[in-house]
Design a protein around this nucleic acid. Structure first.
Length: 907
RNA sequence: GGGCGCUUAGCUCAGUUGGCUAGAGCAUCUGGUUUACACCCAGAGGGUCGGGGGUUCGAAUCCCUCAGCGCCCACCA
């Protein structure tokens, strides 16, 4: 059967078959409480049910799969819950665009709620299938039987329950505030969903009564009638509190001057008028000074008809120039700054320009103290701070904790309602008058915009069913997509039902995601989980959603730019790479060389490089299997099988490796762990041990043992190739379910490691001798080293031998074959082959020794001085003095050794 | 304006508490390979660890300072 192994590993040929074998076996499924094992849980960050997998997902899947497979092999009940997110705005905008492209101009008005939702639902179902297959392609060993979707029925129930709790506690309220309005998508967006784009625009200066005001947005200024100046501004001090008649856009108005400290005197002219309804700063100022907040721009982005007859209904982009022209003709335009650069807010999702508007929306109060937390009544904000500050949740890398705290410090109430249809509809009802009821139901694409316009603000009632008495309309808005995502860790385990799974698997162990969604999601999950579970009386430590947050960096292209589909030259599609090089190679290229929180550049050559390594693993296995009798494949390593120096050495090194890998994985140092196994397999096992195994020194059992252990160690990183090889090893069961290698003290041969060092020393001597004898420029050395009891071999150079023989009674002889290296035989039997790279340049060595001796001497001197200092010996604690004395003795010994080493070289 | 990160070989990056001669992969060059693998093996060259200063017996690592690049937050009348 072994001959089925081809000389090159073809990932494409095996991966799908292996995946379905795993899946069918049930290996991905956790057992739950009855397993009697320790749980290990990860909730997979649900990809959006819109598009396709990108490299960010691939990193996430690779890292989480490593953790899950590792813990599964460690004998824990590892649960990895997969799922998808309905991605409210993102999805609806994609589908609306598609519908528009197919000729439906205004999908919301034309199709109506029910039909549009059907379209979106259909789209997401297709998309979910794509995602599922792509997750499988990456080799992710998640429990598909527990797959979840943020829009499914159970999760809707969770969302409504959560909403109810918060509403009952008075944490969810409806309030009229200034919000970010996206006229394009016809919805609000939260502060976090906004990004700023630099734009060059004209900045106008107008004469406004006694002052000159500056603005980039004259179209909002129709109804401005309050001038604000800084209370200490000498230029305007006398005007404060006075009223002025002045000529403005649509004729004469009366304006008053007020003072506010928030005015920046150096900005513009130091005087401004305020437009409370369309600017966040102005709104806050208006609230402070109790000013009116008239709406100028309607929700479509046009000048409101009540504001101005002349400009009624005009889009603001057209209105701006016309208004400026009008003011110019009145002689009120003072000057125009053409080079003004400012940031305009656009929606993160829809990319529409944001227009601040005042609207009634649903908010979560982050400051109200309702949560019983560690003996106090705490607000959401306080709990969010406490869980990280008290280390209940650890964020990796650590520096993101600071960023997290500063975000919380500036946190305002969270606006959770969105005027789109795709999402969890707000479970609230509004009582109407008959006129309102009729007007509302007439509108096919009603959103809370209608509630605002019709001023339906009488009575509200919670529930998913219509209240019995009176005329009620369901709030047409949906919840922010992060509202349902916030419940992800516990809603996926069955909450609000009190399930065994929830009890057993929650809190989850690790949340692994990109640092770009720390605020969107990570913070919101902490918010939701602590609030909901604590409210149900769970102890604090059971209420956190996860114990550790591991934030990976973003994947960038070769030029360090963000990868985007718009730049196909540098954009890498994970599926293409899997097709070309295999999932294993892609996984390694994403994990090795990347550190938490730091961005990483990815390019195809790197993936190809790891493909070579995958092939190396394959071929090392192939070689091993070819060199072991088929009947011996089942043999396990017994202590008496360990024979040669090489056996002992490789086994000792293997133990070191297991130890280091355990520590690295435990501390989330995936890159380090991967690198170390890579290095062991390639350099130590293949290039060294296998090379030495050719010929009579072959030890089948050790070969097999090291190979199998390596396969287990690297399996979490490269599951496919290792599982495929496992099939050839005549083993029962699959590698995925194997036990993680244990440390075995009887495989550690300290003396052999020491001997290895001694051999190194011998080689130094040889190198020195060679240099002295002017043996050909360092490239070739014809030598073999034997112990003195094998004197029969040919002696090439007497002096050469003598020098080497000083150390460990080694004698050099000619080698017929290994011309590039040195073959060393110890005790007449055990032989090893050492490549020349392990040799040391005598000049460098001498230089190093001199430097080190000098340092040691200095150090010893300073230590002696310290110890002879009576101040120190009197005052320092006894154990410190003892420690320093011991250290001095050690260092003196070391100095002697170093001096000896030096003398050997010099001679 | 506030905060954070990065700067290490030609390129992409590791470097854990300060401590072996500062590492890896790719690229370059030299040599090798009739039996695991050219997706290979052996070797070589290539570094003032961004500049300057300090602490230390010892600094890529800690402190100060300057410079360049990038990110986040806030503001933008």
């Amino acid at each position: 059967m072994d001959f089925e192994m081809e000389s090159a590993y073809t990932a494409k040929k095996y991966e799908d078959e292996i995946y379905s074998k795993w899946e069918k076996s049930g290996a991905f499924q956790a057992q739950g409480k009855k397993s009697g094992k320790k749980p290990f849980t990860i909730s997979m960050p649900p990809p959006n049910a819109t598009g396709v997998l990108h490299l960010g997902h691939a990193v996430m899947l690779a890292l989480e799969d490593i953790m899950i497979r590792h813990h599964r092999m460690m004998g824990e009940d590892a649960l990895w819950i997969p799922g998808t997110d309905h991605a409210a705005i993102a999805t609806q905008s994609v589908v609306e665009k598609e519908l528009e492209a197919s000729g439906i101009k205004n999908p919301r008005a034309q199709l109506g709620r029910e039909k549009l939702l059907e379209e979106i639902h259909e789209f997401t179902e297709k998309s979910k299938n794509t995602i599922r297959n792509q997750v499988r392609k990456m080799g992710a060993s998640c429990d598909w039987s527990k797959e979840r979707y943020t829009m499914e029925k159970d999760l809707n129930h969770a969302v409504n329950t959560f909403f109810q709790y918060m509403y009952e506690d008075g944490l969810i309220y409806r309030g009229g505030r200034i919000i970010n309005w996206d006229p394009k998508m016809q919805t609000t967006v939260s502060d976090d969903e906004i990004e700023y784009v630099e734009e060059k625009t004209k900045f106008y200066y107008f004469q406004y009564g006694p002052v000159v005001i500056g603005t980039a947005r004259p179209e909002t200024k129709f109804l401005d009638k309050v001038i604000v100046v800084h209370p200490e501004d000498e230029r305007y001090k006398d005007l404060i509190g006075k009223e002025f008649e002045l000529e403005w856009i649509d004729g004469p108005i009366t304006a008053t001057v007020i003072a506010d400290e928030n005015i920046d005197m150096s900005m513009g002219t130091g005087a401004m008028t305020i437009t409370p309804a369309h600017s966040f700063v102005d709104f806050e100022m208006a609230q402070k000074h109790k000013l009116e907040t008239p709406q100028i721009i309607d929700f479509d982005g046009n000048i409101k008809s009540e504001v101005s007859e002349e400009f009624a209904g005009m889009p603001i982009s057209d209105a701006r120039e016309k208004i400026v022209e009008k003011l110019r003709s009145k002689g009120l335009l003072v000057k125009v700054d053409e080079e003004y650069v400012h940031n305009i807010a656009v929606s993160y999702r829809g990319k529409g320009t944001i227009e601040p508007q005042i609207m009634k929306q649903w908010f979560i109060d982050v400051n109200k103290k309702t949560i019983e937390w560690k003996g106090d009544k705490c607000s959401i904000k306080e709990v969010l701070q406490d869980v990280v500050r008290s280390n209940m949740i650890q964020i990796l890398p650590n520096r993101f904790e600071k960023i997290y705290f500063s975000w919380i410090d500036n946190l305002k109430d969270w606006c959770i309602s969105r005027q789109i249809w795709w999402g969890h509809q707000i479970p609230m009802w509004h009582k109407c008058t008959p006129e309102q009821y009729e007007a509302f139901n007439e509108k096919k694409d009603a959103s809370s915009l209608m509630l605002n316009i019709l001023e339906i603000e009488n009575e509200v009632s919670f529930g998913t069913e219509k209240p019995k008495d009176g005329l009620w309309v369901r709030d047409p808005d949906t919840l922010d997509t992060w509202f349902s995502a916030a419940l992800w860790t516990f809603s996926t385990l069955g909450w609000p039902e009190k399930t065994d799974d929830l009890d057993f698997f929650h809190p989850t162990d690790v949340l692994e995601t990109g640092y770009d969604i720390i605020f969107f999601w990570v913070a919101r999950m902490i918010l939701a989980s602590t609030y909901a579970l604590r409210r149900e009386g769970l102890p604090e430590e059971k209420c956190i959603p996860f114990k550790t947050v591991y934030l990976h960096g973003l994947i960038r292209d070769i030029n360090g730019k963000k990868m985007s589909k718009s730049n196909p030259e540098t954009c890498i599609d994970p599926l293409d790479m899997i097709d070309l090089y295999g999932a294993d190679a892609l996984r390694l290229s994403l994990v090795i060389g990347s550190t938490p929180g730091n961005d990483m550049r990815l390019y195809e050559e790197k993936i190809a490089g790891y493909r070579n390594f995958i092939n190396k693993i394959w071929n090392s296995a192939r070689f091993t299997i070819m060199n072991v009798e088929p009947k011996n494949l089942k043999l396990t390593l017994q202590n008496e099988d360990i024979k040669s120096f090489a056996d002992k050495w490789i086994l000792t090194e293997l133990q070191t490796l297991i130890n280091q890998v355990n520590e690295d994985l435990d501390k989330y140092r995936f890159s380090d762990a991967g690198t170390k196994i890579y290095d062991f397999i390639w350099s130590k096992y293949c290039d060294w041990y296998l090379e030495n195994s050719k010929g009579e020194l072959k030890n089948e059992v050790v070969l097999l043992h090291v190979l199998k252990t390596c396969l287990k160690l690297i399996h979490p990183f490269v599951p496919y190739v290792t599982e495929k090889i496992w099939e050839f090893l005549d083993t029962e069961g699959m590698l995925i379910s194997e036990k993680w290698p244990e440390l075995n003290n009887s495989h550690i041969f300290k003396s052999e490691s020491q001997k290895m060092e001694e051999v190194q020393d011998a080689i130094t001597a040889i190198r020195v001798a060679r240099a002295e004898l002017n043996v050909d420029g360092g490239k070739k050395i014809n030598a073999e080293i034997y112990t003195e009891n094998d004197q029969s071999a040919f002696v090439e150079n007497k002096e050469f031998i003598e020098r080497a023989a000083r150390l460990e009674k080694l004698i050099l002889l000619k080698t017929p074959k290994q011309e590039d290296g040195v073959k060393i035989v110890i005790s007449g039997k055990n032989e090893i082959y050492l490549p020349l790279k392990d040799m040391i340049d005598p000049e460098k060595e001498l230089k190093r020794l001199n430097k080190e001796i000098e340092q040691k001497e200095q150090f010893i001197k300073s230590l002696k001085a310290k110890l002879s200092n009576t101040g120190f010996t009197k005052n320092a604690p006894v154990d410190i003095i003892e420690k320093e004395t011991t250290r001095l003795r050690e260092e003196e010994d070391n100095l002697v050794k170093l001096t000896q080493q030096k003398s050997q070289i010099v001679l």
